[in-house]
Structure formats: C-alpha cells, structure tokens
Design a protein around this nucleic acid. Structure first.
Lengths: 219, 219
DNA sequence: ATTAATTTTTAGATTTGTCTAAATATCATA
DNA sequence: TATGATATTTAGACAAATCTAAAAATTAAT
C-alpha cells in the first residue's frame, strides 16, 4: 500500500460513516483537496485491489478488507497522537499533522510496542476511540457539559433537548456542533458556567449545560 | 525534500566519510541497490538544488548544505533508534529498518521533543554518535564486538571481562589487542559471530563478543 | 419527459523516480 | 600511447499519481 492509497482509504472510511454508506467521487475530491478525475483514477486502482466496491457513476463502498485497512491506519494515527500529547507534551491541537505522517510507518511490532508503552489507551487526545488490534472500536464516551469541571475541554457533538427553542438559543449565541469548548469556571451559587467557545467567552445556565453533549478531550 | 532525495544524501554522506572526499556514481548505485543511470539522474537534481557539487565523470561531493542536511537526517535516524531500543524494548539489531522510515518524518518540534524525552542521548544503540541540533558530532565511542554488524571493521582495543579464563581463551585463539577485526556474518540462531581477525577466520559465541571492546573503523 | 445543471468519467499531458540499452569518457596496462 | 576494460552518461521508455479540458451520465426542474 502506498501512502496515497492509505490516505484515500482513510478518507472514504470517514466520509462513509465507517463504511456504512457509499461515498460520491466529488465528496472524496473535496475532502482530499484534489480533482475528481484523480479520485476516479485512484478508485479504479483500489477497486482492482478489492479495497472498495465500485460501479461507475454510483459512488464507492468500502469492502470488508477496506474497512479493516482503514481501522488499522486510524489505530496507528490515534496511538501516535496519544504518544505526542502524553509523552512529548504536544498540545492537543498540534498532534494531527505529525500523526498524519506517522500513521504511514509500516511495522506491526512498532505499533504493538507503542500501544503497550502507552498503557493500551482507549481514546486519543481528541476523545476519539482507538481501534484495537483486531479492529474493535470502543464506544466514544460523551459527557454532558454540566458534568465538566473548570479547565476541562472538549468538542460540542450533540444536544439532548432538540426542541426548537433550544436550537434557536444555540443559534443565537453562535454555538454550533463541532465547536471547541473550554470550561473557565463554575458559579457555586447556581452552577451556571463561564465557558470559552471557540474564541468567544460566554455565560450559560445550568439548564443549558445539561442539554449539550461534549466529547471531552482526554488528558 | 523527497524521501528519495534524502536517501541519496545520506548514502553520499556515509560513502564520502562525512563529506570529506568525493564519491563515484557506481559506489552510490551499489550502496543503494539501484542502477548507475538512476544515480546520474538524481545527482543532477541534487546538484541543481545545490546539495552536491557535480562534474560529469568526476564523482559527487557534498556541499555544506548537503552535509548539514545529511546530519539532520542522521540525527533523526539515531534518535529514533534510541527511542525504539530504550522505550519500546526493540532489540539493537531490529531498530534500523523502522528508523529508516521514521527518519523521514518532517517536524522540527517532534525531533526536539523526542531528544528531550530521551534525555539528550549522545550515542545510538550501535554506539554511533548522534549529531546535535546544530550538527556537532561527538567523538565516536568504543563498541562491544557484539554490537557490530556484518561488514563492519575495527581494531580490538580492550576487554570488559579481564578474568584469567577469558584472557586464556583470547590467547588460545590468537586474539590480541591491536588486531584488525571484520565481522563476516552473524548467526540469527544464537547471535554468534563469524569474524575475520587479521587474516584468519574464527567463529565466536555471543558471550565472547560481549566482552571485547572494538574501536570501529571510521566510516 | 425534455432540458438544464451537476456530477463523474475519459483522454491526454506532466512530474518524479526509476529502468534498459547504447554511446561516450576515463583508466589501466601492456 | 594505443587499446581494452571499466565507469559514467545519454536517450528513450515506463509506472504512479496527479492535472486540465472535454465528453458522457445522472439528477433536478420546468
């Protein structure tokens, strides 16, 4: 497998929700910042090698083999992220680019030993689960925002209350899924929170906080 | 710099004794197990980029820029070897191939942090000195015979175990301090060595090899 | 159900790193 | 110093991964 093939497999895995649904050519092209024609070329090769199922004009679908390959790459990527954050004191937002290179190193022994050295971590520094040696994926652990303590950080990934009024509130205060949130402090009086969301600061009630799911950054 | 360019620079560095003398095309080709014509092509490119000085039919010479680049790659290679051997319990003879891949990872921060994490080591697991951030090279240290690899050469300069029985053994097999030693090959089975000492050949156990200090012949 | 817009594929070109085979330069030696 | 052996370069080709521009298929909209 070349680096390029691995990058395509990984992109298709993410875009297809873990291989669940098929992915259009253009989606891959824009995700990878490349031309659709390049994607077509590569897909043909991956199809010949049976990593994907492909019908012209009908998008791509990962095969079993493709899914396993993707999981192995993601496992490497996330283990390296843990290494960088935990052992080399990288900031959690600096790890991705370097892990993107390290994930292509080919040595099964290396990755098993690294896993052991890190204490068999279950999650990477962004809170994403690390696939096991045989591809098992742990459930991602979510927290309610109200359950977080000062200085904890995470990504806003969902709402509990999906009422229109709640969604309106989020919209009005410019809170979107995917936003990076950090707890600044918690008022003892009413358990309301001062948070930093992306670059802005915001004060929110406990009521609101109990309705936002956060994917915590793991230390 | 591509991986391939980096590999050529590194090969030229080693073959030229650290950039001291110039290197013929064919030497590079056989070291890299490639065709002389490929070498000529690559040398032209490296010459355009001013990593080497090149006169047709006259061999290649590393420029200052080329030497610094080579040292940076070797620094990465050897730091990764220390990491593999010391933190991940790789055997000293297993580290090379993986380090060969890791040396191409591009991130200055990564390598500085790794250096720090390892406690700023001066030598790699084979006893070769690790270039500093600015290219300083420590004096090459002594090696145990057991740490040497096929085709390496050096002078026998001391013993670790100075027991009478060990010295008797050396005497019996006509091994003396000052003798010139070359590793012919290493048995995978028990890590015993076939060596050439002066003009004779000899088979010795790993046990013996771990008790003889060798001053390696400089590159 | 046509037509227009969008998506996807094809065709042909480019760059990088490699190769083989042939040509040319250098070296060794008689 | 002429010549045969060896080392090196050139010329031309190929595979991988990409690109642009044009053609073809699909989808959406009237």
């Amino acid at each position: 497998m070349t680096h390029s093939e691995e990058n395509y497999i990984k992109a298709i895995y993410h875009l297809s929700g873990g291989g669940m649904h098929s992915v259009p050519t253009n989606a891959i092209a824009s995700q990878m910042e490349t031309q659709p024609s390049s994607v077509t070329d590569m897909i043909k090769k991956l199809s010949d090698k049976e990593y994907v199922l492909y019908k012209k004009y009908r998008g791509v679908h990962l095969s079993e083999k493709g899914i396993n390959t993707a999981l192995a790459i993601i496992r490497k990527h996330r283990l390296w992220e843990v290494f960088l954050a935990e052992k080399l004191d990288f900031n959690w937002d600096e790890v991705h680019d370097v892990a993107e290179q390290l994930e292509h190193i080919k040595s099964e022994k290396l990755i098993d030993k690294l896993d052991e050295f890190l204490g068999f971590p279950k999650y990477d520094p962004h809170g994403d689960p690390i696939p096991g040696k045989n591809g098992e994926l742990a459930q991602r652990s979510l927290k309610l925002l109200s359950a977080m303590r000062p200085d904890e950080e995470g990504i806003c990934v969902g709402v509990k209350d999906s009422s229109v009024s709640f969604l309106k509130f989020l919209d009005k205060h410019n809170i979107a899924l995917g936003d990076h949130i950090k707890i600044l402090d918690v008022e003892e009086f009413d358990e309301s929170l001062n948070i930093q969301i992306e670059s802005k600061q915001l004060h929110i009630s406990k009521r609101i906080a109990t309705n936002l799911f956060i994917k915590p950054k793991l230390v």
